[in-house]
Design a protein around this nucleic acid. Structure first.
Lengths: 141, 141
DNA sequence: CGGTATCCTTATAGATACTG
DNA sequence: CAGTATCTATAAGGATACCG
C-alpha cells in the first residue's frame, strides 16, 4: 500500500526515466537496437555489426532485451543452429524515441565538447571526477 | 585524420547515442534535470527534491551537468553563500527529448513488467544476470 | 550553507576458455 | 554457430567525516 505521498506528487517522471534508463542505459543495448532496426540478424552477424562487443556481453544484452519484449529470438533447429534476432513492435517504437535523442546529440555534441574544454580550462584542479569515460572512444562507425 | 571507414558507414547513430548516454545515463543526471526544469533551485533544496541522492553524488552530478552546459551555477557571495542551479536553454531542449522517453516508458512499462514475469517463469535457471538492479527500487515520487 | 576527502562495497564489463 | 563459465579489473556509487 503506497503512502499518501505517492498520490500527492504525481506520477514521478524522474522515477519513470530511471526505469527506462536502467533498461537501455547500459553500454550495449542501444547499439543492438539500432543494428536490429535495419533488419534481423543472427548472433554472430550481430556481433560483427556492433563492433567492440564481446560474445559474453552480446549474449547478456540480447537476453535482457528479449526479456523486456524489445527483441525476439527465433531458433531454427538446424545443424549448426540458426538463431535470429529481430526488433519487436515495442523495440521499434523505442528506437523511434531514441532517434530523437540521436538527433539532439548531433545538434548539440560539438557545442558540448567546446563548453567542456572551456570548463576544464577554467577549473584546472578538479579535472578528475568530471566525466565518465568519454575521453577517447575508438570512434568507429 | 579519420580513416576512410568513417566516410563509408555514415554518421554512426549508435556511437552518437553512446555519447549522449554516457552523459545522462548515470543514476542521477536525469532526475536533476527534471527537477530543475520546474525552476531554479539551491543546492540543498535540490538535494531534498531529488530524494535519495547523497551530497556527494549531487555535487558530482551538478558539476558534470554544468561542464556540459546543461545547467548554470550562480554563486551569490553572501553569508552563508547562496548557490543557485538552473537549466540552460540546452538543458531545456534535452529535457523536452527526455519527456518523450518518459512518455514511452509510461506507455510501455506495465507491459514490459508483465513480459519480464513471463520470461522469468519460462526460464527458471538463468534468472541471474538478467537485469541490472531494477528489482525493488524504493519507488518514491 | 555548500561543498571535499576518504574509505568501502558492489555492479559492470573485459578476457579467456570451454561446450552442445 | 551460438552460446556458458570463470576470473579479474575498474569504476560507479554509498557512508561517513570534515571544511570554508
Amino acid at each position: 500500500m503506497p503512502t499518501i505521498d505517492a498520490v500527492e506528487a504525481g506520477p514521478g517522471r524522474d522515477t519513470l526515466l530511471r526505469d527506462v534508463m536502467d533498461r537501455i542505459g547500459d553500454k550495449w543495448s542501444m547499439a543492438v537496437i539500432c543494428r536490429l532496426e535495419e533488419g534481423p540478424l543472427r548472433f554472430n552477424a550481430l556481433r560483427r555489426a556492433v563492433d567492440g562487443i564481446t560474445q559474453r556481453m552480446l549474449s547478456i544484452t540480447v537476453r535482457r532485451l528479449e526479456r523486456d519484449g524489445l527483441i525476439t529470438r527465433t531458433v531454427e533447429p538446424s545443424l549448426p543452429p540458426r538463431v535470429e534476432y529481430a526488433l519487436t513492435e515495442r523495440g521499434g517504437s523505442l528506437h523511434r524515441v531514441l532517434a530523437d535523442l540521436v538527433a539532439w546529440t548531433e545538434d548539440n555534441l560539438d557545442a558540448i565538447l567546446r563548453d567542456r574544454e572551456s570548463y576544464d580550462a577554467a577549473h584546472p584542479e578538479g579535472a578528475a571526477t568530471s566525466s565518465p569515460a568519454a575521453s577517447q572512444a575508438p570512434r568507429a562507425s
